[in-house]
Design a protein around this nucleic acid. Sequence first.
DNA 1: TTTACTGCAAAGGGTTTGCATGAGG
DNA 2: CCTCATGCAAACCCTTTGCAGTAAA
Lengths: 150, 150
Amino acid sequence: MLTQPEIVERLRKWGVRVTPQRLAIAEAVLNSTDHPTVQQIHERVRDHFPSMTLATIYSTLGVLERSGLIQELPFEKMSRYEANMEPHVNLVCIQCENVMDADVGQDVVVRLKNRISSQAGFEVAWQRVDFYGWCPRCASAKRQEQTAPV
Amino acid sequence: MLTQPEIVERLRKWGVRVTPQRLAIAEAVLNSTDHPTVQQIHERVRDHFPSMTLATIYSTLGVLERSGLIQELPFEKMSRYEANMEPHVNLVCIQCENVMDADVGQDVVVRLKNRISSQAGFEVAWQRVDFYGWCPRCASAKRQEQTAPV
DNA sequence: TTTACTGCAAAGGGTTTGCATGAGG
DNA sequence: CCTCATGCAAACCCTTTGCAGTAAA
């Protein structure tokens, strides 16, 4: 989670202009942990910028990605945007469709990255590690239903 | 890599009809290691089925995915299709855009999966592990260029 | 003042859908 | 035979692009 001055500095370093819209979009993504979609980001900045269109959001997300601040995560229907650039695991619930960062396994991802670099001769730039399944809440709901079906 | 009778059996088990088109598409994906796109699959079956359209391929890929034979891998511009359903690492070259399975790291992915299940309370169904960077060929070309620029 | 960004509208392109014909079981 | 798959075309929708007005530096 970056502070506003840090965001400004990172953007200026890339020679792009820092506008209020860009700051709002950057904060909406960087202060999130739910890997928002473009639509969700739009909802979150609409109060402050009612006239902002999706084109501006797409454009800004491209700037943020090229600045190394965020990562695009393409899914079947649309992309989500990742604010956590450290090696980690994403948990994608196929029931409620929420996406969250796992709070375990970061060390294993780093070890995997080192193994790929040293043994596969592949120069790693970044990675995406997604586990799909049932989040704790949906998993227990599923077990309840299996025990006592309608 | 599955044999044709195995593919037939897996499809019949799902109550779907086995047509020559579906077999051709299934073999084109399952006997591949390059994670083909829909366009590439189209090219590979066009010789035998000149009139086949993309709609048929999309439909069949959906059947194969729901049968657990393949996995869709959404990328920025389009999806690719994965024939290796075992836990493993995908290497995505950001230079030549090839996607290949890593021949190391499977054990680490399995260990990661176990850790996620036991410590994050997340019931894993499947996973996608992608490392982005430069494949051995493109990495050495990059180093050459850095050493002796034009 | 200069350059680049915003907002609006239209286009682009991968994917899905509807329907008539044709084939699988 | 009945049901479902194929092939064709059109629709869908996320994303990109072009352009005129506007704001950052």
